[in-house]
């Protein structure tokens, strides 16, 4: 087992209990998704006022809801196409809340350079998801590129807990740009090899 695999398995243990609790109470997964977004809004507020450690804990709480909603849906046999759509849309809002919080903070500190970096990170975070969604309307799967949402959230938490948000923003920005380029290249290559490019 790899190091990241072992860390994932360790975190899965307490989450199983929370999933079982939500299943026992028959909490609708869409409600869990909504709660996750509201908690993320709280994390955005904590980032906006510069309370990074608090933001880290709130993000940790939000990520629990983010992780368990799909599992609860499966266990309660409530998984639906709308649920998947709702989850994706709410995830985008969660990303936006965190980065808007940082944009507000850096603007308040009079740092237009980091306002720009956070704004570009926001744009490319959204483009990462959009490029995959749009690609998968034409090809079966476009799962290339490193910087997906779980990586972004874990990095935000690391940045918040260890007060290294500037370095984290740079990493997310650069790897999000690379991920978007990966997805453009992969989609172009897949469509060209299928011969579908000429008919589109």
């Amino acid at each position: 087992m790899t190091v990241t695999g072992a860390i994932g398995a360790t975190f899965l243990l307490p989450l199983r209990g929370i999933i079982a609790f939500c299943v026992a109470l028959r909490i609708h997964p869409n409600v869990l998704t909504l709660i996750g977004v509201l908690v993320s809004a709280g994390a955005g507020w904590a980032l906006a006022i510069g309370e990074f450690r608090l933001a880290g804990f709130v993000m940790l709480g939000a990520s629990v809801f983010d992780f368990i909603d799909g599992k609860v849906a499966d266990r309660l046999r409530l998984a639906s196409r709308f649920g998947g759509f709702w989850d994706s849309v709410m995830d985008r809002f969660s990303d936006l809340f965190l980065l808007i919080g940082l944009i507000y903070l850096y603007a308040d500190l009079g740092r237009p350079d980091y306002v720009l970096i956070a704004a570009l990170t926001l744009a490319f975070s959204v483009m990462t998801s959009y490029s995959r969604a749009r690609a998968e309307s034409m090809i079966p799967l476009c799962k290339v590129g490193f910087m997906e949402r779980p990586e972004r959230i874990v990095l935000f938490m690391i940045g918040a807990f260890t007060n290294r948000m500037a370095a984290v923003l740079w990493v997310i920005l650069v790897l999000s740009v690379v991920t978007v380029l990966d997805r453009i290249y992969f989609t172009w290559r897949e469509l060209r090899s299928d011969g579908r490019e000429a008919t589109a």
Partner: peptide, 14 residues
């Protein structure tokens, strides 16, 4: 993230 001195990146908070 952890090794780079925050000053090198002009980190506004660290």
């Amino acid at each position: 993230v952890w090794l780079t001195p925050p000053g090198w990146l002009g980190d506004p908070m660290a």
